[in-house]
Every structure is written in C-alpha cells, then in structure tokens.
Design a protein around this nucleic acid. Structure first.
Lengths: 225, 225
DNA sequence: AGAGTATCTCAACACGCAGTGAATTACCAG
DNA sequence: CTGGTAATTCACTGCGTGTTGAGATACTCT
C-alpha cells in the first residue's frame, strides 16, 4: 500500500471541480503524457521567442508555459527558476558544422565580407537570432547576458578576424564594429517596415561590409592612438 | 454641497498606528509640505534615472517614490499612471538655447564633426542622456518610445544634416549612422570600464566622425542603389 | 480672515507573479 | 508483471505591483 499520506491537507473539499468532464476529443489531463518526451526543448524554444520579443522582465513564466501548452510548474521542474530558464535560453545554439560557419572557414573571399555573410546568415536562424536578441536586450541589466555577449563577440567575431587579418587597437575597433552590426540586426528584427528589413540578406551584406572594413582599417585620429 | 459620504468603508478601526510618535527632528508627516513645491520635477528626475538604468518593466513606482522621498500615490496625482510618468520622462529636455545646440548652428566646421560634437555634448547632460537611454531601451516594446526616437532622430539629426549637406538615400544612411552613434553612447553609458567610456568627449568625437562621414558618403553598392 | 484648491500621506485593494509540494500518470529495467 | 523513476498537472502561498479613496495640511485669492 502506498502508505498513509494525509489525504490532502490543502483546501479543496472532496473534489470540487471534476473539470468540465466531457471535453471534446481530449484524453488524459493529469500525469505524464504518453509517447516520447520533447517538452524541455519545446519550453526552451518558446522561452527564446518570448524573451527575445518582450525582454526578461516583461515575460512571465505563465505566458511561456501557455505558448508551449504546458503547466508552469514544469518550467521549475526542468529549469529550476525563471533565471535558470533565461540562462538556458541565451545559450547561443551554434554548432561548428552549421553551413554559415563552415562557409566562413572555407571561403577564400575577403575576411570582412565573409564575416558579414556569416553574421547575416546566423541571424536568419530563428533560434540564434532570438538568443542574440535576448542577450542584447538584457546585456545592460544581467551579468550572465553581458558575459554571453562578450563571449560571443570574442569567440565568433574577434578571435577569427584578428587572427586572420591584423588590426591595430582591436578592442576599440571591435567594439565599434560590433555595435554597428548589432544596431543593424536589431533594426531588422524589430522595425519590420524599416528599409533595412526589406533588404535581402545579400543586400545587407553588401551594405554593411564597406563600413565594417572602414571601422577596422581607417587610421585612428592622433588623439586616441 | 459636499454631501454625505460614507465616513470610511475601509478597514482601519479607530487609528491603529499613531506611527512611532517621537521621530527625531521630524516635524509634519501628513498633508502638504510648507515652502515652494518642486516635487513633480523631483519625481521626474528620479524617474528618468531609474527608467534609464533599469528599464520600464523593472522599475517600480515605489522605488522612484522612495528615491524622491515621496509617497507613491503622489505619482498618480501628478502623472496619472506609470505610463504617464514614463511618457513624461522620455520627453527629451532640449531647449534651442542649450550651448551644444547653439554651437552646432553657429560653428563653421564640417557638418558631420559638428553633429558628432553636439551629440556627445548632449549625452553629457544627465537628463538628456537618461531620456535618450530610456527611449532606446524601450523602443522595441513601447510605441511612444519608438515615436520619440523617430522624432529625435529626424528633428535633431536627419533634418539639420540633410538640409545642409546633400546625401543620397538619406533614410538608409541615417539609420545606419544613428545605429552606430547609439551603440557608442550605450556602451559608454553601461559599460563603464569599456575603452569607449574612458575616452574624453573630444576623443570620442574624433573617433566617431570619420566613420559617420563614411556612412553618409561612401558609394552604395549596386545591389541596393 | 475664510473659502477653495493644490499638495501630500496613509491604508488598503485587486491582481499577477514566481515558486512549492503533493498527487497522478507513463515509461523502463529487472 | 513489478517497482522505481521521470514527467506532468493541480491547488496553493507569499509577495510585490499599480492604483484608489479618504483625510490632513499648506498655499492663494478675494
């Protein structure tokens, strides 16, 4: 016998709501669902979506759970806390064999143009775009996001580029360039009727490459050098 | 006639807490304060501070009221709602006789350098910097902020510049340039140990001017033109 | 001086939030 | 089949939030 549990110290006297007994084709309403389990991934996907569109503070766990078709308590079960979910959501889902990354390494075009191409292509993958957007939105408020941003910037932009083409004052120039690139991506993401959003990926690459190259190579004024 | 109001349907039976009668040198604790009234301005100042540092959603009216040394209800009295307070806070406090603006109009240097100088000087005025920061932070979430940003961008950047020096595809180029400028300002504001934040205003101007000029004047690639 | 109005505090409400513990169901290894 | 473990929902608790109404105090205009 499953032992003598107190039959229910909570309120709810003798099953008040059998819960609208005859729901349409709906079967089980309680306990584990049959079939394989993909729920954690589903939650993570919708979390990235919400965090990237509304920011951390405006996003409620209930909204994510609703979108994922799941009880809010499941989030606590899989990710411990809202913070835990957020930190999982801003883990940029990059794998070295993604086409954009492979092409960056194997192409023999100009490094800057290759970088711009890779960047724009990365933003075309929704999960990546959402993670990056969430990171940028919270970078000023959340240390984890700030670190994620620095890591992304160093690993996927700074290190590959500087190691290939020499650039003086790399920290300064990279900050300027990444700011420029981020501003473009954000405008494309949020202001859908902006000119920038109407351009094709190839057009955006062609548009941003010259300025990126200029930022990296133009002689710095005497005051700062 | 003031008519017969129900004398008090709320709880609070016969004044429960006379509130720690003898506070140090503190006099009046209730009712209007003696002397001239500057409270609305005080609230607005602290609101800008909080909104710019923590964003709209993370900022509570109670926090603002505490910082201003005032009861939260006063905010509702002066600004109606949190939203009302925010919309007042993102009204960029610019007057045409501010030194930075005057200098922009009267100097005879290169227009782009003048613009950069004005911009950096504007960000040195805390109230302006805070309003602009709050606008940028919420531009993706709040229509009022988005409009404020467009207005600022057009009135104080686009119109003066385009009217003076001809630039083709102004919308596209202005978006790129303003994104670049905003990214610099934000990095200086939030990442205090960044290289950018350690530069003097004059240095930042010297650093950003060439890129701004490049963005405005470099021939656009055939794909977009 | 006195009526009327603006400023200000207090107490409370209603609501949404993140988080918790127990109960229920399905999966899986022996 | 059977026992253990993971997945899932439910009911609930505090807590913090924006907002409200009433009452108290000061200022202002005649």
């Amino acid at each position: 016998m499953p032992k003598a549990r107190t039959p229910g110290p909570r309120g709810a006297p003798e099953r008040p709501s059998p819960r609208a007994a005859a729901e349409s084709g709906d079967q089980h309403r309680l306990g584990r669902r049959p079939g394989p389990t993909t729920t954690a991934q589903t939650i993570l996907t919708h979390a990235r979506d919400q965090f990237s569109r509304r920011g951390y503070a405006r996003t409620s766990l209930r909204a994510i759970a609703d979108a994922a078709g799941v009880d809010p308590a499941l989030i606590a079960h899989f990710f411990n806390s809202k913070r835990g979910l957020f930190e999982a959501a801003i883990e940029v889902p990059l794998k070295a064999d993604m086409p954009a990354l492979v092409e960056f390494r194997t192409s023999d075009k100009d490094p800057v143009e290759r970088l711009a191409t890779m960047y724009v292509k990365l933003w075309e993958t929704p999960a990546v775009a959402q993670a990056l957007t969430a990171i940028i939105l919270e970078a000023g408020h959340d240390m984890a996001a700030a670190r994620a941003m620095a890591r992304f910037m160093y690993t996927w932009v700074g290190e590959p580029l500087v190691s290939e083409m020499g650039v003086d004052h790399p920290e300064l120039r990279l900050r300027l360039m990444v700011g420029f690139m981020g501003a473009i991506a954000l405008q494309r993401q949020f202001d859908a009727q902006s000119m920038l959003a109407r351009l094709s990926p190839a057009q955006v690459v062609a548009l941003m490459t010259p300025t990126m190259r200029f930022i990296l190579t133009n002689p710095l004024p005497g005051e700062v050098a």
